[in-house]
Amino acid sequence: MIRTASTLLENLKTLAYLLPQLGRALVTRPETVRFPFAPPVIPKGYRGRVEIHPEKCHGCGLCVRDCPAFALELQREELNTFKLIYYPERCAYCGQCEVSCTFGAIYQTNEFVHGTDDLAQLVVTLVDRKPA
């Protein structure tokens, strides 16, 4: 008798298994992030905008060679006259340039990059080296 009652109870439980959790969900805070009003949480190591320490760049072109998205371009005229150009809209934010750079010049910040149609932001001259 007790056993049949308990199996019946088990069966009833499977009929409304989610019910306790639904009750709990009503009293806990919702997970929704109110995005434009609350700032997003970006971790320290987030791979965002590519920046450079221009004085450390030697213009070796390793980053350009390894970039899988062809987002970097080296325009070299002479040994000490070159430009390193960065196209953010091509960038895949993989961070390979940071790995490849042997001088620790190029690096990624954790700043999120929004899409834009502003031409000045689409072509960024990272290094513009001229002989001193």
């Binding site: 971790p43 190591g45 987030y46 791979r47 934010y93 993989c94 961070g95 790995v99 954790n110």
Partner: peptide, 21 residues
Amino acid sequence: MEALSGGRVSHAVNIIGGVRS
């Protein structure tokens, strides 16, 4: 994963010979 690698979906932690983060 985002805290570890800097990306939610493409982690880009692998380099030939090891990992980077």
